[in-house]
């Protein structure tokens, strides 16, 4: 076990735990944001640099600070380690820099993007971004390529997190897409237009932190915040059959994996469950799904709205009392 302190809060964690995992165990507001790390994908993380933190004390044995900011998702804790996230101005500034880099070539087409409302980049920009861009060059464009009947790809929105590549590598048996070219010309592609057809390929949609990979069967049907997430399951031979249904009225608009509070899939689901079972009768409904994210969905979520109303009413009542 190793004791690690993050922004003043301590926790004992098993050896081999990363700083990010430890921060998630502590919970609260001091968890570094992560775009490319995904808890269910091996070797993920380290690329986007949003989760960088400052290690102000290396360990009990070797208390020297680490010379550079480190990606918390790929740095394992040492006993006695002290980490600064939100308490370090250096970290916050570097993170603002990373967010700016991620956004300079992003099309900012949220108004027409199906990911809006559950987009990690939106959240990240909201919390760490600047109101105005300093980038005044034309933004990067790519030729649209068709990657098959189920998944729509918008390369301009991609932040190159490698999650979809790792998903294809680790949960499907034949990866046909990958990271091609290099530098800022890198793109996710199949090179020769090739349909990504695989029983589990749809999971790439769920792992995509932005709107680069979206569900064609859900395309332009509804804003996510107008849909109602429900936990549901069915008997499935290929996967666990445990999913989240996104309903509007009695219509199932979309099926996704169930995601944890960090927006990362809990279990992979098969394409049949995801794309073909859009009838409410296909499913056993377990109940409303709690979305524990600070994204737009939750901002206007009824739970929050009710809570906010309660506060507002209390305030007004107090004002009335005070006036009297």
């Amino acid at each position: 076990m190793a004791k690690v302190t993050i922004d003043g809060e301590s926790i004992e964690v098993p050896d081999g735990t990363t700083i990010l995992q430890a921060a998630r165990m502590i919970g609260g507001d001091n968890v570094p944001p992560a775009m490319c790390y995904h808890s269910k994908l091996k070797t993920s993380g380290g690329y986007c640099r949003t989760c960088i933190v400052k290690v102000s004390k290396g360990s009990e044995k070797d208390p020297r600070p680490m010379p550079k900011l480190v990606p918390s998702c790929r740095t394992t804790v040492m006993d006695g380690m002290e980490v600064q996230n939100n308490t370090s101005a250096e970290v916050l500034e570097a993170r603002r820099g990373v967010v700016e880099f991620l956004l300079i070539n992003h099309p900012l087409d949220c108004p027409v993007c199906d990911q809006a409302g559950e987009c990690h980049l939106q959240d990240l920009g909201y919390e760490n971004g600047a109101a105005k861009t300093r980038y005044d060059f034309p933004r990067r464009k790519f030729n649209m390529i068709d990657i098959g009947p189920n998944i729509k790809m918008h390369m301009t929105r991609c932040i190159m997190c490698f999650r979809c590549v790792k998903t294809a590598d680790q949960i499907t048996d034949n990866r046909v897409h990958g990271m091609l070219f290099r530098g800022d010309a890198s793109e996710i592609s199949t090179y020769i237009e090739k349909a990504i057809i695989n029983d589990f390929s749809g999971n790439m949609i769920d792992v995509c932190p932005v709107g680069a990979l979206t569900d064609k069967t859900f395309r332009f049907k509804s804003r996510v915040w107008f849909t109602k997430p429900m936990d549901a399951h069915r008997d499935c031979k290929k996967c666990s059959g445990k999913v989240a249904l996104w309903e509007k009225g009695n219509e199932v608009l979309r099926v996704t994996s169930r995601k944890d509070k960090w927006g990362e899939s809990e279990e992979w689901i098969c394409n049949e469950c995801r794309f073909d079972k859009k009838d409410i009768k296909d499913w056993v409904i377990e109940g409303p799904r709690h979305i524990d994210r600070h994204s737009v969905i939750s901002l206007n979520h009824y739970e929050n709205v009710v809570a906010k109303l309660k506060i507002d009413i209390a305030k007004q009542q107090k004002q009335i009392v005070d006036k009297k």
């Binding site: 880099f101 991620l102 530098g183 890198s186």
Partner: peptide, 17 residues
């Protein structure tokens, strides 16, 4: 800019900028 591999965002985006 030409030689950045493109893996991490500061280098990929910053060198081009």
């Amino acid at each position: 800019h030409h030689e950045s591999c493109g893996q991490c965002s500061p280098c990929r985006e910053g060198t081009g900028w």
